[in-house]
Design a protein around this nucleic acid. Structure first.
Lengths: 123, 123
DNA sequence: TCATTATATCCGCATAGGAGAATATGTGAT
DNA sequence: ATCACATATTCTCCTATGCGGATATAATGA
């Protein structure tokens, strides 16, 4: 039953687990989605509210929200022609808070990390 | 002192905070880096150990490790010609654990999320 | 100094995925 | 049924970033 454990040929199951986790994190690896998530942690909002809040096109915002929902960060509720999104799970808030704390502490180093380019604008 | 609060024209400071947090999360939005981080949570390892562990090119692994270090997930320690990396902050372990729990619960939905493509291989 | 080993950096290539615009779909009102 | 509004989906474009391979740099030893 034991299968190859050649380090470089890792278990497929682990591959999948890591792939899923990576997706999960990548969902928050976008300023726009992070802003949306924080907005939705703050309370329930419709898509149009979100559009106004982040200032992106309606289509893009809709996609971002769907992404957050797929990842389990927020839940959607349809009411009439509107869809309301909200972040309910307190552990999500916990995750964001934890990240906020860690990034604040490490702000300097992170800001200069060029391996990942959020937007190294000139500020 | 209060400045424009037009929702779509958000505070630059907030822009930067979100940009940095996004970077922080994006660092974990990659299966390879996630695998490396878990490996380093487990104990201290040299770059070559890591190369063997993840099975990617030495250069790539070095970059991934530098990225994790810049983001504050791991620390580097040079000893002779080798560099040893390790994840020390327990809050990092907490972050990973939390994500692991949440993704496990939501595995099904996440696996089908096509907004983000980790690798939707045919499994 | 020169050789060897361990890391780090650079380069070109390929692709994931974000952006807006246009369009489709769903839903309540007339 | 038709219209108007709210959201979702599709399209093309373009950039960020992962990858390997080559090379530069650092550190130890002869």
């Amino acid at each position: 039953m034991t299968r190859s454990v050649d380090p470089a040929t890792l278990l497929p199951a682990d591959d999948e687990r890591l792939g899923v986790m990576a997706k999960f994190f990548r969902a928050l690896g976008e300023p726009a989605r992070l802003r949306l998530l924080e907005f939705l942690l703050d309370g329930e909002h419709s898509v149009s509210d979100c559009v106004e809040h982040v200032g992106l096109s309606q289509g893009r915002v809709s996609t971002h929200l769907a992404c957050l929902a797929d990842c389990g960060y927020v839940t959607a509720r349809r009411e009439g022609r509107r869809t309301y999104y909200r972040a309910t799970d307190p552990r999500v808030a916990e995750l964001v808070t934890l990240a906020h704390t860690l990034t604040t502490e490490n702000h300097a180093a992170l800001a200069t990390c060029e391996k990942i380019d959020s937007f190294e604008s000139d500020n």
